[in-house]
Design a protein around this nucleic acid. Structure first.
Lengths: 237, 237, 237, 237
DNA sequence: AATGAATGAGCGTTCATTCAT
DNA sequence: TATGAATGAACGCTCATTCAT
């Protein structure tokens, strides 16, 4: 139903056609290495080796490795952003069905090699890099927009904090499956059963949740982003 | 109730007393770096620098860096093994309460810096290294021993496969929380709420689960380990 | 009294008006870098960066970096040539006063950032590059024209060799002050005193000098230049 | 009479004989390159090439190139420090003769390839590096200790400031000769005449100097060093 | 007239590793 | 038991240069 759109990278420089292509090639190659061999293997030399160009040619497009990596990450994450955006808008189903579709889409995506490899790398990276932490925070905020909305519709009695915590736990539950049933992992074959379990238990969780007695009216969902960025990501528009 | 036993590393090589100590120091220093700065920073140079010894002194105990890393990982994981072992044996509670205690213990552990940093690194590493995959598989098998037993007691009607899948999803749910509410993560402050949500929803999941109609009698929980190792880990002893 | 004329660089290549301008801009930028950051920083990249053009645009005007550097140096030195030329022609003073004016002009010039930075760089460069040696030789020959003439007028009894050696030492004395009392150097504040000392002692030196008893009639001032170039530089015209 | 002592370098590390030698070899090779090809050519690769060792072997002794360069410079300058120290202590001549000996020794030293190449490089470097500036300042302070003492003895009527300025100008005069009559320079052959001129004129300068009418009692010789370092260098001990 | 694309050589530095002491 | 000496491979990066556009 929902499909992860293929990686779309915006070429930065290059009025020449070949230059635009090169940037895309570089980023795609970097992602390829990232998926296949992990972050430590994403070196300029390895990218150059695979592309059969020289390292200095990469430096022609990116003045530093950090620049390149940043572009790689933002490219990767923006592709997921589009994925979540697609999930949010493309549906006219009932809230419960929409949530079920979301859960299934995420777990399907987890089965792909790309997601299985990429996200654990990003989680590890986030532990060492504040910028990556923020990027990941942003992408998951985007992802939870749909979930919180479904929860609000399914169980209108819930206060904001409970809704957000439910959405967070629901998302965490699904992400955790990556470790065990991701692509090539032992439990990947059990994904159909896991999807059923996840849908049943998580939707039940939402339905049966009770609001907290005395909600703090000032509570806001915690985030690494500044208020403006947060609003921009969650704004319905 | 449950307590994470302090890291105990068994020295492998080293005949002399001081040698054993040195190995322990090396491993502890490596783990310290691993937690503070991540895997890429665990270099022989850095270990030597912190210990104020020479790099070749480390090589005296470990013939290669890979050897050392393997020892670091097995040390780390065996400490968690003891943690899970402790969870299993130390309790005479009712099954539901035991499960609740397990969930709370895991989520408490997730709040520690060590676990927050270590596990994402391990998950990333598992994507590139078969040995690490197997080590992680082993440790999670250990962890699920208690869960599957609780599930069997709470809901005796369930078939093996459903039990195992429930245990797997339950574990995955908890591990996923690391990403969002681990030590220093934005949602860490919401852990009390998340614990309540996790307990309620996961225990409800176990209670309400239904066995599959036509279970395959030959089904066995998927694992990267060989049968003997698997049995050794799950054997009640 | 004497004034260092502002740097005038003659564009060498470039048929078009804008091209000539570009060459001048390039050279001025190069000199600016040379003065501010020293020779090693005069790279095509840095020039291009400051001019906000591309490196290859510079190559459009100079087929090699060495070409450019040579042009930079000849531009710089020709500006000093004009300086010395100005000293020589602009004066109708008595010889002793003319010499005093020369000394003061040189020491004033030494106080400028440009000269303080430029000349030590050139001296160092001369140690490695024969062409630079010759260029510097030429510029100092020009500079000594006035001095030798003053000496001849002040102390007509002197033979050529003694005159030239006196002029050489006088010039060397002044140049040496750059190292200690150039722009930004610790002794720059003592320049008034140093000027007085230099004038008194060097003019006294000229006045008190005695010719050598048995002058070699074939002696000629040593130079790296060929005879024709030498004559051209010293020719009164 | 006075001789520039051969470069003496203190080995830093190396309990092993070969290691001590290596450090000396590295520094000597670096100085050799510095003299022959100038500072920009003093690269780790060039040193390694000449020594027929690997670049990483140099890094075994010096953790960074800057470290090495610093050691090179301090080695070079300390050899000159000893040179000046030798000039100061080794003499029981009358003050005027001592000064004459100093002038001749400096001008003899200027004729060596080493000094001819080294000092212009240092002067240029000083324009870009504050540390080098300070090192050079220190070495020249050392050099002027003898000169100022001679001046004080020759012309006791002089105030401190005039003495110091005379010493400064005298030193500058001699240093300036490097540019024209250093090793391989066109005027090197005239050095005997230049020495005579220098002796005559500079000693006459000292003899004929007059104190300033109203000396500032607070005046101190300008320096880049802190007061303690300055005193340490000039202290007779 | 100017740029973009790409190269190749060189730079300082990090790292795991081997070996003799 | 531990170190110093030395290596070789790899890393990110700078630079001048060539060539097609």
């Amino acid at each position: 139903m929902f499909d992860l759109p293929s990686l779309k990278i915006k070429a930065r420089s290059g009025i020449y056609a070949t230059g635009q292509e090169r940037v895309v090639q570089i980023l795609e190659t970097a992602v390829e290495i990232l998926i296949q061999d992990g972050f430590p293997s994403v070196t300029l030399r390895e990218i150059a080796r695979r592309m059969d160009i020289r390292v200095s040619a990469i430096h022609h497009y990116y003045s530093s490795r950090d620049d390149l990596i940043l572009d790689v990450l933002s490219g990767v994450l923006s592709s997921y952003e589009e994925f979540f955006e697609g999930l949010r808008t493309a549906s006219d189903l009932q809230p419960e069905e929409r949530l079920r579709a979301f859960i299934n889409a995420i777990l399907d995506d987890i089965l792909t090699l790309k997601t299985t490899r990429l996200f654990p790398e990003l989680w590890a990276l986030a532990g060492r890099d504040e910028n990556v932490s923020r990027m990941i925070d942003a992408i998951y905020i985007r992802s939870r927009v749909l979930v919180t909305r479904c929860i609000a519709e399914i169980n209108p009695a819930l206060d904001l904090r409970t809704r957000e915590n439910l959405a967070l736990f629901l998302t965490a539950s699904l992400e955790g499956v990556t470790i065990f049933a991701g692509h090539g992992k032992p439990w990947a074959g059990e994904m159909p059963q896991l999807k059923a379990i996840a849908c049943d238990s998580l939707i039940a969780m939402v339905c049966n949740a009770r609001p907290i007695a005395d909600p703090d009216p000032d509570w806001r969902p915690p985030t690494l982003l500044d208020a403006a960025s947060y609003v921009a990501l969650t704004d319905p528009v």
